[in-house]
Design a protein around this nucleic acid. Structure first.
Lengths: 236, 236
DNA sequence: TACTCAAGCTTGTATATACAACTATTGACA
DNA sequence: TGTCAATAGTTGTATATACAAGCTTGAGTA
């Protein structure tokens, strides 16, 4: 069993693939334990294990009596606090407005090219989102996307897709690192954020791995805006 | 089964208690699945589940053929990146020096009192650690400890215990939030860090829950020092 | 029509069993 | 004494089974 893959792993990979290729959309019902057991010719407990581990990873959501479903953006709270906070702001009385620019190819610095794992810099897409709260600009997001790793349908339609939509369609993320630094922002960014050039800002470099795309984004927040991160919540 | 606790939960709680009270030290061997099954009069699979979930939470480490062991500080990488980074610095050629002050009771602000869950502010212990790298001060840690929630042996000997030792003896943490803010540090802190008063700094407020003690600490880092956070690593 | 409730499906817990894979120790042999 | 192989013990995977607990649906009733 060391050479050949474990059975529950095969099921997990199948489910991951269905989600990542978009064949199973958000909130879609996943086959029940018994159905999966029959489909893969395994016992219910083996199928159950696959579902359970993917649930722990945040890809699925289970409800006793109801069934198993593909997790929503919202459901993946433990791993993606940042995205959730952005969403919170978005939902809090619609006080948030974003100047949504379409993704467009740009040249990037060597560092970002390495982070994205690209050689040729013109295969990188870029977008900016300016977040408002109480009509005050509080956050500027700069997103760099390795176009080769973006799902095909997004590549084809990238011009019509807003960054927020892109993030929503992004493959479920199971890993991410955040590199946070205190900096003085460049002049034109300070102007966007309507702050003095000497105001200390947070710069967050976020790096994610997923089987579909590697996304790196930088966020600059105005002072007073706290950046909250929750580690994995585990209850007994 | 909704009213009464599930059997595997009882076993988990027992193991947690043994670890938190120090009866099972780091790297100590935990009873095997069969032993636990016999001890709690459950099946091996039930005992196994308890061990497995605690392993996922980072409290235990399992090795096929060898057994199950209490996790080391080092092993809990996924949840405690900050502590690990501090440790990294500590180990990297011993370039790190800390001015270790003993824990001492101090009055605190209302905010910290609330965070620590105390009414009377003089039950809060305080310590400062200044971190060096290449003989340059890079980080000042301010730690606030709710003395009531600190293990007894620490309370009795707090005067002899360095903050680093305290953290090492701290109960395994399963939850933590980090509130990060870009600020201008106060003058006396800037002097400690040997930076200009106008230099943007990171202020990290860390809040942890454990059954033993609640520790809240603020870290101010000098610019250029990045604050790295890794989310829970989940592999298929 | 609107409401109730029971049946059926789904997930949650628990057990008993079997074998595979790996480790560490023990003991026989050179 | 040193080496190696057998052995016992441990975790990992997988199955079959049973019942508990919660949701959904639809038939039947008021």
């Amino acid at each position: 069993m060391s050479q050949t893959k474990a059975k529950f792993t095969v099921i997990k990979e199948h489910i991951c693939q269905m989600i990542e290729t978009g064949q199973w959309q958000q909130n879609a019902k996943v086959p029940s334990e018994n159905e999966l057991a029959e489909q893969f010719t395994v016992s219910r407990m083996t199928a159950r294990r696959a579902l359970q581990e993917l649930t722990e990873q945040g890809l699925l959501v289970r409800s006793q009596g109801a069934g198993t479903f593909v997790a929503t953006f919202k459901s993946q709270s433990s791993l993606l606090e940042i995205r959730n906070i952005a969403d919170e702001i978005h939902e809090r009385g619609h006080q948030h407005q974003a100047e949504q620019l379409t993704l467009k190819p740009v040249p990037v610095t060597d560092e970002i090219a390495i982070l994205l794992g690209v050689e040729n810099s013109d295969s990188v897409f870029y977008s900016e989102v300016l977040h408002f709260e109480n009509n005050e600009p509080i956050q500027l997001e700069q997103r760099f996307v390795n176009s080769q790793l973006v799902p095909n349908y997004l590549q084809q339609n990238f011009a019509q897709i807003t960054p927020h939509e892109y993030l929503s369609n992004e493959a479920p993320l199971t890993e991410a690192t955040h590199e946070i630094e205190a900096v003085l922002a460049k002049h034109h960014i300070c102007q966007l954020l309507a702050i003095d050039d000497s105001t200390p800002c947070l710069q967050v470099k976020r790096r994610t791995w997923s089987s579909q795309g590697v996304v790196s984004l930088a966020i600059l927040t105005a002072p007073g805006n706290k950046y909250r991160l929750g580690s994995h919540l585990v209850l007994n």
